[in-house]
Simulated scan of single mutants.
Amino acid sequence: MGRRFWPIISIFCLVTAGCAGSETVLRKQVEMEGTIEQLTRQEKALDARIAELSRELRDLQQRMKGTEADVDAIRPGLDQLKASNDALYQRLAEQQPSSPGGEVHPQRVEAQADGTVAHPVAVAAAEKGGQEAYARAFAVYSQGNYPRAIEAFEAFVRAEPQSEFAPNALYWAGECYYAQKLYDSALKSFQRVVSEYPKARKVPDAMLKAGFSLIGLKDPVRARGELQSLVEKYPKSPAAVKAKEKLGHL
């Protein structure tokens, strides 16, 4: 083969090798694009999850702020509660007659001069101040003793209806009923918060749980109305966020 053909052969070899290399590069490019697309989908899913967790975190922070009054009420009362609890029950025991079997009933109600009935916790509230009585009721609720907590919260409201903690006490009484699936009683407690203490911070939460109670009572029409009213009156509240979620499933 003449020397003059060598450049042509060289070019042919380079072109052939280039074609084979282009196919490999193209295949690698397709594979890379598939990987990038998969990573993009995963990134979007991760962003969505992060956004969801951020919303949940903000909701939790708002709920924690909403219970500041409860925490502030409990903190100073717990130390006093620890010191005075035994003395309180001892005093109640001395004031009440024993049953035929000799058992003392510290939860006995006492008739007043005007014919009304007062619970011992209400008496304690009048003697020692509403804050400690509220803290004591909330402590019972925290222990999961819902019937006793209801008695204590409602007794507190009767004794201290003008207290800043009265709407909170009504709300937590409603929560106690709700936890026991006593939805009708729960609804009444939550509605009392709204009607008797319309400016209280617990009103949005009470409206939310009133809606949930109506759902428990199999009354979705009224439940929707209650939740929609909450969203309209308190659109920026954490309770409204929960209401919107629930409305989407009614």
Rank of each mutant, 00 (worst) to 15 (best):
Q90V: 00
D184T: 07
Q62W: 11
M32R: 11
W172V: 08
I8R: 09
Y197M: 04
I8G: 01
A83G: 02
L227K: 03
G2P: 15
I50E: 06
A149P: 07
T35G: 07
A73Q: 06
Q90L: 12
L39R: 14
A206L: 05
T40R: 14
E33A: 11
H119Q: 09
E175T: 10
D47Y: 05
A125N: 08
P235T: 06
A159Y: 03
R55N: 03
V104C: 02
N145W: 05
S213G: 09
Q80V: 07
R41M: 12
V193A: 04
V203Q: 06
F165E: 04
S189Q: 07
A137C: 08
G174F: 04
L92T: 03
L170Q: 10
Q61V: 12
S185Y: 11
I150E: 06
A17C: 10
Q112Y: 03
L92R: 11
Y178N: 06
A179V: 01
Q112T: 06
W6C: 01
M207S: 13
E232W: 06
N168H: 14
V193L: 06
K188F: 06
S163I: 01
K82C: 00
A51F: 03
Y177G: 01
C19G: 15
G2R: 08
I50A: 10
L217K: 00
E68H: 08
L92K: 05
I36D: 04
S99R: 14
E37H: 07
Q96T: 14
L182M: 05
G144F: 11
L88E: 05
E103S: 07
A206F: 08
E68M: 12
V123T: 13
Q131D: 12
L214A: 08
L182I: 03
V221E: 14
A169I: 05
A166K: 00
Y234T: 10
I50D: 02
E56A: 15
E154W: 00
K82A: 11
V117S: 06
Y134E: 02
R3S: 14
V203L: 11
R41Y: 06
Y171D: 04
K233I: 13
K244N: 11
F156G: 06
A126W: 04
A69F: 07
A210G: 10
T24W: 14
A139Y: 00
Q107D: 13
R55D: 06
A93C: 05
F138N: 02
